[in-house]
C-alpha cells in the first residue's frame, strides 16, 4: 500500500495538517518498499481560489492507494480523488503522522465516503 498524509512537515514526527486543499506537504509512505517521499505543496499559500483542485491534482500525480487527512476534502477535490480511485481516511488531526499511521492500522480512522 502506498499511503499519503497531509502534513505540516517532512518527518514521521511532524504534525498532521488537518486541511486537504491547503496542506503544506504530502508525505508518502510505501509500505512494501518502506520508502518515504515528501512532496511540498509548492506555492499553495499564495493561491487564493481553487486550492482544493490544485492539491488534488498533486495527489493524483503521486497516485497513492490511500490518503490520510484531518477534515476531509471539499467537493472539488473529491471529484479528482474519486476519479483516481484513492481511498480517503479522515479524523487524523492534532497528532503526529506516526500516531495517525497507528490509528489507521488499528482501524480507528473514519473512511470518507
Amino acid at each position: 500500500m502506498k499511503i499519503a498524509f497531509t502534513s505540516k512537515g517532512n518527518s514521521w514526527s511532524s504534525e498532521m495538517d488537518p486541511r486537504f486543499g491547503r496542506a503544506e506537504y504530502i508525505f508518502v509512505y510505501d509500505e512494501e518498499s518502506k520508502k518515504i517521499e515528501v512532496v511540498e505543496n509548492e506555492g499553495i499559500s499564495q493561491v487564493e481560489h481553487g486550492a482544493g483542485p490544485r492539491t488534488a491534482k498533486l495527489v493524483f500525480d503521486i497516485n497513492p492507494d490511500i490518503i490520510i487527512t484531518g477534515n476531509g476534502p471539499g467537493g472539488n477535490a473529491l471529484r479528482v480523488l474519486e476519479k483516481a480511485d484513492i481511498k480517503m481516511f479522515t479524523g487524523a488531526s492534532e497528532m503526529s503522522l506516526e500516531e495517525a499511521y497507528k490509528k489507521y492500522q488499528n482501524n480507528e480512522l473514519t473512511i470518507f465516503e
Binding site: 491547503r22 499559500s45 499564495q46 493561491v47 487564493e48 481560489h49
Partner: peptide, 10 residues
C-alpha cells in the same frame, strides 16, 4: 481587495 481565505489563513 478581495477578502479571500488566504489573508485569514495568514
Amino acid at each position: 481587495a478581495d477578502n479571500t481565505g488566504k489573508l485569514v489563513a495568514m
